[in-house]
Amino acid sequence: MIALDNVTKTYPGNVQALRGISLRVEKGEFVFVVGESGSGKTTLFKLLLKELEPTSGAIYINNKNLGKLRRKRVPILRRGIGVVFQDFRLLKDRTVYENIAFAQRVVGVPARNIRKNVMAVLALVGLTDKAKSRPDELSGGEQQRVALARALVNNPPLLLADEPTGNLDPKNSWEIMKLLEAINMRGTTVLVVTHNKEIVERMKKRVISMDKGLIVNDEKKGGYYYE
């Protein structure tokens, strides 16, 4: 599903964010990427979305070399990746339904199918009754579930979540993680960047630990590497 071969990324001013990392994530896996600030997690996230280009090395998603992907094809790549952020990034002037339907419109889903798909994904995240609410009428956990629903509505085979529980209390964080696990059980590959030690320990999933631009540990059913 995802493969990185000796990828480096150096920012202007010779700031080395990634120092030659290689990894494989198979289809259907659930992977945590952990590490302190500046360890290179966010750079890795942006490289996978082709928001950034690596300085050297190659990145493959579904056997496609992102380095050889033409700019015009980038939207097609991103349609296959659902993205969830710490700050939810919902459109505050639209309802829950409109926020999710927006993702369908962006990829050109016919209007007649949008309602059915949005209601189905709202049912999946347990927010059918909140379809007409606006984001600021929801709790943090509910907003993150809307963000998840938006990321999933186009059925992407890969889901990237950047600190999805960063703004949530422990109860809501755990609910979001269980939802991510359920999504993973349906076949979606899930990659979660997080600081949440407790959750990583409890989930017993693969954990890739990063430090100063290097992968320092990769545990199949590991816990949080840093103490």
């Binding site: 939207p75 097609i76 991103r78 990034r89 459109l91």
Partner: peptide
Amino acid sequence: KEEIAIMKYLGATDFF
């Protein structure tokens, strides 16, 4: 800006 950033992540084309 926020909406445009979201559109990009969702796979919107330049035209869209």
